[in-house]
Amino acid sequence: MAKKLNSGNFSTEQLNQLVARIERLEEEKKALADDIKEVYAEAKAHGFDIKILRQVIRLRKLDKADLAEQETLLQVYMEALGMDTDHSAAAE
């Protein structure tokens, strides 16, 4: 029979199971983080800018409305600071 803990309605067995699951998930998370790090290293080896690639990944997570709002605010802030936001002029 599972022993009840004094401060709750669950057993030590349940607690052990929960802790074991969390530990397994933490290991999986670390393995995934290592895999992601390897992919970024591969991208860098192929000449991609990692800082920009991370920004692209972050932006792709946003929905269209949030992305549009961020782009608009960035443009407003840059213009307020006197920064050139007309990229077409740089191409000429």
Rank of each mutant, 00 (worst) to 15 (best):
L81N: 12
H87I: 15
L53V: 02
D35V: 06
L62K: 12
Q70R: 09
E69C: 03
S7R: 15
Y40R: 01
A43L: 01
V19K: 08
H87V: 14
S88I: 11
R54K: 11
I50A: 02
K4Y: 14
L62S: 08
K3S: 06
Q55E: 15
K30G: 00
V39E: 04
E27K: 13
D49N: 07
H46F: 10
A45I: 00
K44P: 02
L15S: 05
A89Q: 15
A45N: 03
Y40H: 01
N9M: 11
K3Q: 10
V19W: 05
A65L: 06
H46I: 07
T85N: 03
A65G: 02
I50P: 05
Q17T: 14
K51D: 10
A65I: 07
A31S: 08
E13K: 08
G82D: 03
L25P: 05
Q75W: 09
K61T: 12
K61C: 08
T85P: 02
I36N: 10
D84T: 07
L32S: 03
E71S: 07
A2Y: 02
L62C: 10
A68G: 03
K4N: 13
L32V: 11
V39M: 05
F48E: 08
K3N: 09
E26H: 05
N16E: 15
G82P: 00
A31P: 03
V19Q: 06
K37V: 04
I57H: 13
D63I: 04
L18F: 07
